[in-house]
Design a protein around this nucleic acid. Structure first.
Ligand SMILES: [Mn+2]
Ligand SMILES: [Mn+2]
Ligand SMILES: [Mn+2]
Ligand SMILES: [Mn+2]
Lengths: 219, 219
DNA sequence: CAAATTTGTTAGAATAGTCTAACTTTGTAA
DNA sequence: TTACAAAGTTAGACTATTCTAACAAATTTG
């Protein structure tokens, strides 16, 4: 059984895994806000437990078991976030910190019951996919708003970043998942976009924001 | 900030405190299932933190701060149990283990929201009082069923023991909080009682059971 | 390529929480 | 009031998780 600490390491490794599925020790240490030697020693111990493949000076890879364990923690995290938003009426900007703790609760039935009460959701409040009970995850293929063309109609489907500040920015603009946008224009100088949506006839979004908004193209 | 381990020690000290408010180290160690030296060293550290009054070879007492901290953890525990039963449809015999973990979550708003969704309950699913947000607890004054007299009408109000086995026994007899009982007779040989209640014209309850059932006398 | 920089490793130490073995104090009972 | 038992303490050790300082390997740059 993984400790909370180990679970957080596995989760970071899973989330950091890029195309190669490889992660540098430095990235891992930075993401968990621990020193390099701390990450180094934990990685060795995760290897002993069979969750990580590690060779001196080489990048890290999760084993099959490690990936599954990580995915199941992410499942608990995202189900919790959905539960907090849908059942307990939290805002999407308030749920991450609580979920960061509740994901470590060992009580299968607790999460099964959440899942059931929520009607077996497939995405969390930020549009990220919820791994299934076997740890399988269906990656969603949305487009960054930044890639959309003027004149297109799109619907906000997910975010590539769910920091509290970003979520509060979206709240301030009344942007939420499902919001339908029309792209009015794109400024070629700074890649900012002018969009319109319900009660907002013209809103300018910076490139940074447009990169972080994932949309479903409607036409 | 107390660690989960420290919180469990405070909670045990609080629950073990007898009339004098004093607890022996052995009781504490037994209740937490740790060795005597483990409890001894933790007690010293709780003293350093100002939660416990301790002198070599003397019984232990919680400080005012220690009592409040303990009561607030118990509050989280009992609110959680109530939430699991009322909102998430768990049985009263299933909630203790989960609450034992969730009581350590640091997220005031999470518990405030539970409280609100539950309509600010004053007792948990086993009839134990829920401390208020200031850590104040209103002790309930119920009578053990064992003290009731034949002919009396009583209502099941709380339990002095909430072990899974006992709760499953009560489930098997369809006994739950609120059940109204009529005492038919008491066997002077073994102190067992014969009672009747909805759809149960005659049920015999052992002395052990009668001691653990707390009732409100209706007439 | 050699130097500089970044990345990763090792050594050594600290804290929290736990244990067993050995010993001491306190309380009980003959 | 001594003797035994129960309760409590100390010493020493172990694992988990973390750190800083010192050093080494790998990578990038001029
Ligand atoms: Mn999250
Ligand atoms: Mn976490
Ligand atoms: Mn309980
Ligand atoms: Mn607990």
């Amino acid at each position: 059984m993984a400790s909370s600490t180990e679970e957080n390491y596995l989760k970071s490794l899973y989330n950091l895994a890029n195309v190669q599925g490889e992660v540098n020790l430095s990235e891992l240490a930075a993401s968990l806000q621990v020193s390099l030697p701390t990450a180094n020693s934990m990685v060795k111990s995760l290897q002993k437990s069979g969750w990580v493949i590690y060779e001196k000076y080489k990048p890290l890879t999760l084993t099959k078991e490690g990936k599954k364990t990580a995915a199941l923690i992410i499942r608990k995290h995202r189900l919790t976030e959905m539960f907090l938003v849908k059942v307990m009426n939290f805002g999407w900007e308030e749920v991450h910190e609580v979920a960061e703790q509740i994901e470590h609760i060992h009580a299968p039935k607790f999460f099964e019951r959440m899942d059931q009460m929520l009607g077996f959701p497939t995405v969390d409040p930020h549009g990220s996919p919820i791994p299934d009970p076997q740890g399988k995850i269906t990656p969603l293929s949305y487009t960054p708003l930044a890639h959309a063309k003027p004149g297109q109609h799109v619907q906000l489907a997910a975010l590539t970043n769910s920091s509290t500040e970003f979520l509060e920015f979206l709240n301030s603009r009344k942007l939420s998942l499902g919001t339908q946008l029309t792209i009015l224009s794109k400024e070629s100088y700074d890649q900012s976009m002018v969009v319109s949506y319900a009660h907002h006839p013209s809103e300018t979004l910076s490139e940074k924001v447009c990169e972080r908004l994932l949309v479903r193209v409607l036409d």
